[in-house]
């Protein structure tokens, strides 16, 4: 695993780039570890409270530990009319967790999201930001099985 300090330093030439640093950290850890947030604040010259305010503002950033695969289900209107509600129920039951939770094996975290801009093929979920199209309840087991 890469060192969080190196990751942060890698973003230093981006003026005001603390959000870029948070992304880079999440690419590695799937969330922003506390000590990394404190370090990022120091490197980018903002207060820790400010860095925390930023990290908690954006819904794609998390300061809580998450699973290996972050599944986000789109619930915006186009996906909603395409059956997102049902899909959510299926997701929750098949993963055995509620929204916001992580499976006990640390594999999946389930989150909701607003439109991810793939509304040509609703309903849509993303797994670690890769979109999966036309996810009906029927094909869901297949979709999930692809993630080991």
């Amino acid at each position: 695993m890469a060192n969080y300090k190196d990751i942060i330093v890698g973003c230093i030439d981006k003026k005001g780039g603390i959000i870029e640093a948070f992304h880079a950290l999440q690419n590695e850890f799937n969330y922003i570890p506390h000590e990394a947030l404190v370090e990022a604040a120091r490197v980018f010259g903002v207060s820790e409270a400010q860095a925390y305010g930023v990290a908690t503002f954006y819904s794609y950033l998390s300061v809580e530990k998450r699973g290996k695969y972050i599944i986000r289900m789109c619930e915006s209107a186009p996906c909603h009319v395409a059956g997102a509600d049902e899909l959510l129920k299926a997701l929750e039951s098949q993963l055995g967790i509620k929204v916001g939770e992580t499976t006990s094996d640390g594999k999946f975290t389930l989150e909701l999201t607003e439109c991810v801009g793939q509304c040509q093929a609703t309903p849509v979920i993303t797994v670690n930001s890769e979109p999966v199209f036309n996810v009906t309840t029927k094909i869901l087991p297949q979709v999930l099985a692809a993630y080991k």
Partner: peptide, 26 residues
Amino acid sequence: AQVINVKDRGHHAKISTVFDGKLADS
């Protein structure tokens, strides 16, 4: 001192210290 800021957004937003901790720890 910059020890407090807004945390979260929308109506979940609240004033907090880093990691929503105690003032005395900040």
